[in-house]
């Protein structure tokens, strides 16, 4: 699960393969975050984990770790 999640984040945020992803980072502070990245994030969660995340719920999540925990508990 964790590995799938990390791969999904690399895809959604278009993170270079050589770059490390610190799960403690607030994803909205990631250099690649913008309104289009939000679309990619929503799409990849639906694609990989069959989860459509409610807007209200997404607002309460801050770090990549929060996202991982959210989908793990689904």
């Amino acid at each position: 699960m964790k590995e799938n999640f990390i791969n999904a984040m690399y895809e959604a945020f278009e993170i270079e393969a050589t770059e490390e992803l610190d799960l403690g980072t607030e994803f909205r502070n990631h250099d690649n975050w913008d309104s289009l990245t939000k679309l990619s994030l929503i799409a990849v969660l639906d694609d990989e984990f069959d989860i459509i995340i409610e807007d209200d719920k997404l607002e309460t999540l801050n770090t990549f770790k929060d996202l991982l925990e959210f989908i793990s508990n689904k």
């Binding site: 939000k38 929503i42 799409a43």
Partner: peptide
Amino acid sequence: NGGDVFNFLLR
């Protein structure tokens, strides 16, 4: 609000 529109449409 593109993100929320997309979210709605996916559903």
